[in-house]
Design a protein around this nucleic acid. Structure first.
Length: 119
DNA sequence: GCCCTGACCGCCA
DNA sequence: ATGGCGGCCAGGG
């Protein structure tokens, strides 16, 4: 059933529909994003084997449950831009978390701190 | 089933 | 840099 409610406690199997499987795949990709790094929706989609389906990544993140503790803040829009409205709570939260990982956020753009060779 | 709305994206004016 | 457009395609009214 496609309209099943997430969260599933554990990731992986039992893909009810093709999309359920796709979303879980997306969660896995996001969960693996290293601290201090970001990936775009498009890149995540591609890494999940879903080229051209960036929007699905957005839906998957929104549908994900807190209990999964996904590093959703490491997923940004094309050009490393935070996609939320500049003054929204979500925007500030994402920027706060990214800065907390040593990244610089300027006008919604995420930059690697050149002075600090993360890694 | 039609239509609008998206945590998107690349292209082009 | 800004904005419109088409592509993508699942949800929800």
């Amino acid at each position: 059933m496609a309209s099943r409610r997430y969260p599933r406690k554990q990731l992986l199997p039992d893909a009810g529909s093709r999309d359920d499987a796709a979303m879980e795949e997306i969660w896995l990709v996001v969960a693996a994003l290293p601290r201090g790094e970001v990936a775009t929706y498009g890149q995540v989609a591609e890494a999940a084997g879903l080229p051209g389906r960036a929007r699905l990544v957005g839906r998957a993140l929104k549908a994900s449950d807190e209990s999964l503790h996904l590093p959703w803040h490491r997923v940004v829009g094309a050009g490393n831009r935070i996609v939320f409205p500049p003054r929204s709570a979500a925007f500030r939260e994402q920027a706060r978390r990214l800065r907390g990982e040593g990244l610089r956020v300027i006008n919604g753009r995420v930059h690697r701190d050149s002075k600090r060779p993360s890694r």
